[in-house]
């Protein structure tokens, strides 16, 4: 690795980090607008035209609020909690292929921070780390509601990680690789050999299980029990105030963005779009259009997340566990078996 490589990587990391933060910021705005439109309202419209400065106003408000650390909390862990939550949310973006190779002069720039050959496993590792931020924060608050929220988050995340992992195994059986870049490359174009190339058409059941688990992993409705305000005040962030609370809320939106990006890459062809090599454009233009296509897919998935949140009521806790253990895990295992049989006897 040359010095140029290192500088380019650092620039790429910074750009992706900034894009992540901006998208997370505007997801809060989009969430409120989507909620408003689904309920025949207007939504935030006072800060700037159509309220587009609302995230900045919210951020400023978060910084101005009084910072309260409860006297009986474990102070160190109380601060570590939100930091860990936002850090684990951010590092998931490292292995996602944002586009193909961009040629700048003679330099080939891969639009991906690093292409490790176990990308999918890395994503799972980061996802399972994500629960620590919530757990540590909830435990360190020394508050019964926070603790209950943290326990819920931990058991929910662990249960749904199993179904998520099993659902992805079926996909990995067809792709035969763990590298996200190769998985995206295999879904080239839209149609080949008489069938769609995107994994969602090859593994629809796996996608369904995966998206349900993604809802549970990001603590989004209808599985937002860890922070369910009707029962647990604020759940694991009951005692948090000021920007530490902001970090938790922000981490949720970053998680949503990253999981949408993972889903777009795994199931919706990542940066691929129909007719990408029949348009007669140069390689660089195809790459740029591919990045745009990926972001459109991500935004559609984020919208789906919000749409579901403002439609479905929250699950009861035993229903949540029932769904995870008695429905999704057997389904995922059945999906693996069927995929194996089909691959053996048809191909």
């Amino acid at each position: 690795m040359t010095t140029t490589d290192i500088i380019v990587r650092l620039v790429l990391i910074t750009v992706i980090f900034l894009i992540t933060l901006v998208i997370a910021m505007y997801s809060t705005y989009a969430e409120r607008k989507v909620a408003a439109f689904l309920q025949d309202r207007v939504g935030p419209n006072r800060a700037g035209p159509y309220g587009i400065l609302q995230p900045l106003a919210d951020g400023a408000k978060m910084f101005m609020k009084e910072e309260i650390i409860p006297a009986r909390s474990s102070k160190f862990l109380f601060i570590v909690g939100p930091s860990l939550a936002i850090m684990t949310a951010c590092i998931g973006s490292a292995v996602i292929p944002w586009g193909q190779t961009l040629m700048i002069g003679n330099y080939a720039l891969d639009l991906q921070v690093t292409d490790i050959n176990v990308g999918v496993l890395y994503i799972f590792g980061v996802v399972s780390l994500g629960v620590y931020g919530v757990m540590i924060g909830g435990w360190a608050s020394n508050n019964k509601y926070s603790l209950l929220g943290a326990i819920r988050a931990a058991s929910q995340n662990i249960s749904y990680e199993i179904a998520m992992g099993l659902s992805i195994i079926a996909v990995l059986m067809t792709t035969g690789t763990l590298s996200l870049r190769e998985i995206a490359a295999q879904q080239h174009g839209f149609w080949s050999h008489g069938w769609f190339t995107w994994n969602v058409f090859k593994q629809p059941l796996a996608f369904l299980i995966f998206i349900v688990c993604a809802f549970a992993e990001t603590n989004r409705a209808p599985f937002d029990l860890p922070e369910c305000e009707t029962e647990l005040v604020g759940g694991y962030h009951t005692e948090y105030s000021s920007m530490k609370l902001g970090f938790y809320l922000f981490a949720e939106y970053i998680n949503m963005f990253i999981s949408s990006a993972v889903m777009a890459t795994l199931f919706f062809g990542g940066y691929n779009f129909p007719y990408m090599h029949h348009l007669g454009l140069s390689a660089n233009w195809v790459t740029i259009l591919g990045v745009i296509a990926l972001f459109i897919k991500i935004f559609c998935l984020i919208f789906f997340f919000m749409w579901v949140r403002w439609t479905l009521p929250r699950f009861r806790y035993d229903q949540l566990m029932d769904l995870g253990w008695k429905a999704l895990i057997p389904l995922a295992i059945a999906n693996i078996v069927i995929t194996g049989l089909v691959m053996n006897f048809i191909k």
């Binding site: 989507v34 408003a36 439109f37 689904l38 309920q39 025949d40 309202r41 207007v42 749409w307 579901v308 403002w310 439609t311 479905l312």
Partner: peptide
């Protein structure tokens, strides 16, 4: 049932706001 619910909320998405 979920798809039905989603279609109902989507209909409201395109409706004029009453504010």
């Amino acid at each position: 049932a979920i798809l039905k619910g989603l279609s109902i909320t989507l209909k409201h998405f395109f409706r004029k706001s009453v504010t």
